[in-house]
């Protein structure tokens, strides 16, 4: 699970460097989010600009990540492809997450594997 960490306006930005967020990687994704956010604090923006496809397992993993972070640490989402946005829209989960149209401008932190 390739991810790059950055920082933008006080938020931790996690850019997922995968083209698919699906059933085959959903558990690994959640584990990677858990370790990337192990230091408590800042809000988290999940940048999905590289993700071309997401299925319901991927959506479930993002919901799981949100619950993992807890109500005090909001998870926002950025840069959805049309196909990914469709899954959020059809399930009405776009009403739950704050969704940014574009990737935030980040200062890069050391990469994680």
């Amino acid at each position: 699970m390739q991810m790059a960490l950055g920082e933008a306006s006080g938020a931790l930005v996690i850019e997922l460097r995968e083209t698919r967020l699906d059933a085959a990687v959903a558990i690994r994704f959640k584990d990677a989010i858990r370790s990337a956010t192990s230091h408590p604090g800042t809000p988290v923006i999940l940048d999905l600009n590289k993700v071309e496809f997401m299925d319901s397992s991927g959506l479930g993993a993002i919901v799981g990540a949100m619950k993992l972070l807890g109500p005090e640490r909001p998870l926002e989402i950025a840069a959805l492809s049309p196909g990914v946005r469709k899954v959020f829209r059809l399930t009405r989960m776009d009403t739950v997450f704050r969704i940014h149209d574009r990737s935030p401008e980040t200062q890069t932190l050391p990469a994680t594997g």
């Binding site: 299925d55 479930g60 399930t91």
Partner: peptide, 21 residues
């Protein structure tokens, strides 16, 4: 019906998507 969004379910969306599309 899809899961109610505010319930924050981690599953249950797949069959809804199949039947919708």
């Amino acid at each position: 019906a899809p899961p109610e969004p505010s319930f924050l379910q981690e599953g249950g969306y797949g069959l809804f998507l199949i039947r919708t599309l």
